[in-house]
Amino acid sequence: MIWLPVLGLILGVGIGFAVNVTIPVAYSSYLSIAILAALDTVFGGIRASMEKTFDGAVFLSGFFFNTLVAALLAYIGVQLGVDLYLAAVVAFGVRLFQNIAVIRRIAFNRMHTRRTRAPEGGHLPPADSR
């Protein structure tokens, strides 16, 4: 089951190569920001899942909303002549690294807990031998 997201990613890449869709270079920067927002949402979702606070509706809506708003922000920035996309890059970048850090810590905590539990259980003498 844990491999399903990886399979999904491979499937998405496969579809991308199969349909061979390209966008104009002018819009390439918007898609870059949208991808950053999408990655932020994905890592946020993984973190929420590990913290047992995952909500499917929040996750899905966050993904699409953040992606669109990020692209929109970049577009508005271009129209105004202000590099607004930098704000999105910084915001999503910081959140991305925070989420990755939290995921890493949770993963280490779980590994540590398993290690500390395993030897205790392993050295316990069988009940009938006591």
């Binding site: 399903l4 997201p5 999904g8 990613l9 390209t22 994905v42 993984i46 996750f59 899905l60």
Partner: peptide
């Protein structure tokens, strides 16, 4: 959900 989102992200990455 993550699988679906991963598929979309993979597609977006390829297009980019």
């Amino acid at each position: 959900s993550l699988t679906g989102i991963s598929t979309v992200v993979g597609f977006m990455l390829t297009v980019q």
